[in-house]
Amino acid sequence: MPLVNEADLDWTDVADEKMRVRRKQLGEAAGSDQLGCSLYELPPGEASWPYHYHTANEEALYVLTGTGMLRLDGETQPLRAGDYAALPADESGGHKVINDSEGPLRYLVVSTMNEPDVTVYPDSGKVGVFVGAPPGGRDERSHHGYYRVEDAVDYWDGE
């Protein structure tokens, strides 16, 4: 497994109409198979992915620099350098990072890389399904999609 230095890795910009964040996939660059680790930089006024939790992958967050807010298990708490949060693979690990400061917020996210995984988005009533590669992984997936929980059908529908 190679030793990597984050300064040698390029940032990947993750941006759409709802969020903007920069990411360096340290775990992947080091050849990690079962453990993911990404360095994130969240600009002022931005928020990370929608509030969600995983059902198969535990995550942890460690703040390197800056300040912000963490919505964790439905409650909002201040974040500052040195803070660490465990994000279990269940509803109690529900999370979203918000940078409400005037400077960038840099943090590490470490996670198991199990698949299949289902992510649950309580605010929007959706679930995400990841088969073939876990969330954050770059391998090809045999199935990946987002579905509204309210659209659930009976097991025998369509048979």
Rank of each mutant, 00 (worst) to 15 (best):
M1S: 14
P2A: 11
L3I: 15
V4E: 02
N5K: 12
N5Q: 06
N5R: 08
D8I: 02
D8H: 03
L9C: 07
W11D: 15
A15C: 14
D16K: 04
E17D: 15
E17S: 15
K18P: 08
V21R: 00
V21G: 01
R22N: 09
R23V: 12
Q25K: 07
Q25E: 11
E28I: 04
E28A: 15
A30D: 10
A30H: 04
A30Y: 06
D33H: 10
Q34N: 14
Q34H: 12
L35K: 01
G36V: 08
G36S: 09
L39Y: 04
E46I: 08
E46F: 04
S48T: 09
W49D: 15
P50G: 14
Y53H: 11
Y53L: 12
H54V: 07
A56N: 08
N57Y: 05
A60P: 02
A60D: 13
L61P: 00
Y62S: 11
T67W: 00
L72F: 05
D73P: 03
D73W: 01
G74S: 09
P78L: 06
L79I: 11
G82N: 09
A85P: 03
P88S: 08
P88V: 05
E91L: 13
E91H: 10
H95A: 14
I98D: 01
I98L: 13
I98E: 13
S101R: 00
R106G: 06
R106H: 09
L108N: 06
V110R: 00
V110M: 07
V110T: 04
E115S: 12
D117V: 02
P122C: 04
D123A: 13
D123Y: 07
S124G: 15
G125N: 13
G128E: 05
V131N: 01
A133N: 09
G136V: 04
G136A: 11
G137N: 05
R141W: 06
R141Y: 06
Y146A: 15
Y146W: 11
V149E: 12
A152Q: 11
D154L: 13
D154I: 07
D154A: 14
Y155R: 14
W156C: 05
